[in-house]
């Protein structure tokens, strides 16, 4: 929850001296936040790994996953990392037009991914896997749901960033703000790389 707050607090402007390490406060804060998030997703992934085989009622994981569909949505999220890094590189060149363009495309790709997840959840629900059906259901929806919420928060941040950038209302170093949100976005992507392999591709 703190990420956008971190992204916009400016250490440089109130420290009376340059930082001891020469690094940006904001970026250091963001990396620490991501390090901390590893423990969060680690807990959720471990819970899922422990419980994925425990199906007292309802469908088994292997019968329900639609690998081709999820592969496509994973690919879309992976490509959104490319568009994000292009946005960061445009922002570093102070190319506002392309920054906004790539940020918008990233947000759209992210939205496609979340849309795919909503479709997947409804399909699973129709096939009889509810949140309360089994341990598999509870832990699967919690893990992927948490990831989906992270993606959605990322989309909101990207869109806010585009809006603020258009009106020139980003306080502080614009390229750094784009870079920080980029870090968050890539992190969400690498978490999905793990989830895609451990949850979808390796059968229980």
């Amino acid at each position: 929850m703190a990420e956008s707050a971190i992204a916009h607090d400016h250490g440089v402007s109130h420290g009376a001296h340059a930082s001891s390490t020469g690094l940006s406060n904001n970026k250091m804060g963001m990396w620490m936040f991501l390090g901390s998030e590893c423990l969060l997703f680690g807990g959720l992934i471990s819970t899922y790994m422990l419980y994925r085989g425990r199906v007292s009622s309802g469908p088994q994981p292997n019968n329900i996953f639609d690998i081709p569909f999820t592969s496509v949505s994973s690919f879309i999220l992976l490509m959104s990392s490319l568009t994000m890094v292009l946005a960061v590189s445009s922002a570093q060149r102070k190319d506002d037009r392309n920054t906004n363009l790539w940020l918008t495309i990233t947000a759209l790709l992210g939205a496609t991914f979340v849309g795919g997840q909503v479709y997947e959840f409804t399909a699973f629900y129709r096939e009889g896997l509810g949140f309360t059906t089994s341990l598999f259901g509870s832990s699967f929806y919690s893990l992927t749901g948490f990831h989906g919420v992270h993606v959605s928060v990322g989309i909101i941040m990207l869109m806010a960033l585009v809006g603020m950038n258009r009106n020139n209302r980003i306080p502080g170093d614009k390229a750094e703000v784009v870079e920080l949100i980029g870090l968050y976005w890539h992190f969400v992507d690498i978490i999905w790389i793990i989830i895609f392999t451990l949850v979808y591709l390796i059968p229980s």
Partner: peptide, 8 residues
């Protein structure tokens, strides 16, 4: 609102 507000 927080994001729009500069720290100083």
């Amino acid at each position: 609102g927080w994001a729009m507000e500069p720290a100083t």
